[in-house]
């Protein structure tokens, strides 16, 4: 890890907290894929990027919500290049199908590369629910789906001059660890513990991805974004009782989802963050992620486990790692 005291330097913080936001010119039109793009941070990011003239593919679970979101964006930006695709990211087969739908949509529109993949889709579940593949729901949607989708799309990201992978993580990744002997918490499931673990897994995935990409000489950079406490309804879907009530109270005090969307836009469009060596960003400035997330052996172990779970043969895809 690079400079450790970035967060303690007020001048440095001030200098980048309000980064200059500019529109993209026609010949630097970015191609961006965003999951969970029908509400919350995902939808705000679609709007932010569409407003800057990017070509955006959004993914959502419900066809109806995808249609509504697309109309909402077009109302704001009538000339925007926005497409929505549907996929239930709790199923690995649907993650792969989404990747191939993205590939064919891009080739239909004459695009040969993806500049940024924003793994935003996330879920919370009050109960232990297992997915079609036999994985715990939060672990599958919040960790395995981004892992597999990134693998599937790496060849297209590799073709960009400055390919970027972003995972929406959370400050809840601090003060937790991976429970290796029961990683999906089958026996002692706890909503928050499971959620925190997946957000830690996001940071570890991004860190390990950078390590492997730079070893392979790739230009792609990966970042985790800490959205802070945002006023979205993530804590209301698939939950009940106390979790629902607490989230209703907490999220009222949160920031609007446009704030993390600006951080995502900053990481995607500005060259500066790429040269910092920093992986974890909040409000357009780097923060130090948790000590656990920086353990190389744990990140490697999680990577190999995720490969096995997703049925990926080591070194079969992407930049030769």
């Amino acid at each position: 890890m690079g400079s450790e005291n970035i967060t303690n330097n007020p001048n440095h913080t001030k200098a980048i907290i309000e980064p200059e936001m500019r529109c993209l010119t026609a010949n630097e039109e970015k191609v961006i894929v965003i999951t969970g793009a029908t509400s919350g941070i995902g939808l705000a990011t679609v709007k932010e990027m569409a407003g800057r003239g990017a070509y955006v593919i959004g993914a959502g679970r419900s066809e109806e919500r995808c249609r509504n979101a697309e109309q909402e964006v077009r109302k704001l930006y009538p000339d925007a290049s926005v497409n929505y695709l549907t996929a239930d990211l709790s199923s690995l087969a649907e993650v792969s199908a989404l990747a191939s739908n993205i590939r064919s949509r891009l080739s239909r529109d004459g695009k040969s590369a993806i500049d940024a993949l924003v793994n935003n889709a996330g879920t919370v579940s009050s109960w232990y629910v297992s997915t079609v593949d036999g994985f715990e729901l939060q672990f599958a949607v919040n960790h395995l789906a981004p892992f597999l989708l990134t693998h599937e799309l790496l060849p297209l990201l590799e073709r960009s001059q400055d390919g970027t992978v972003i995972c929406i993580s959370s400050g809840s990744h601090y003060r937790t660890r991976l429970h290796w002997n029961d990683i999906m918490l089958r026996k002692h499931y706890n909503t928050l513990m499971a959620y925190k673990q997946t957000k830690l897994a996001n940071v570890m995935f991004v860190t390990e991805l950078n390590r492997r990409l730079s070893a392979a000489g790739s230009r792609i950079k990966a970042f985790a974004v800490d959205p802070g406490l945002v006023n979205t309804d993530i804590g209301l879907k698939g939950t009940g009782g106390i979790v629902k009530k607490v989230w209703q109270l907490r999220s009222k005090g949160g920031t609007p989802p446009e704030q993390p969307a600006r951080s995502v836009a900053y990481l995607v469009t500005e060259p500066a963050p790429r040269h910092t060596g920093q992986v974890y960003w909040k409000d357009c400035r780097p923060l130090k992620p948790s000590a656990y997330s920086r353990k190389p052996d744990a990140a490697k172990k999680l990577w190999e486990l995720s490969e096995r779970m997703c049925g990926i043969k080591a070194g079969s895809r992407g930049a030769g790692y």
Partner: peptide
């Protein structure tokens, strides 16, 4: 099932065990 448990309210929630357990 989740809807049915929630419909029973508090009684439903406290008699419910996670399936993995």
């Amino acid at each position: 099932c989740i809807e049915a448990i929630e419909a029973q309210g508090f009684a439903g929630r406290i008699t419910t065990c996670n399936v993995g357990y």
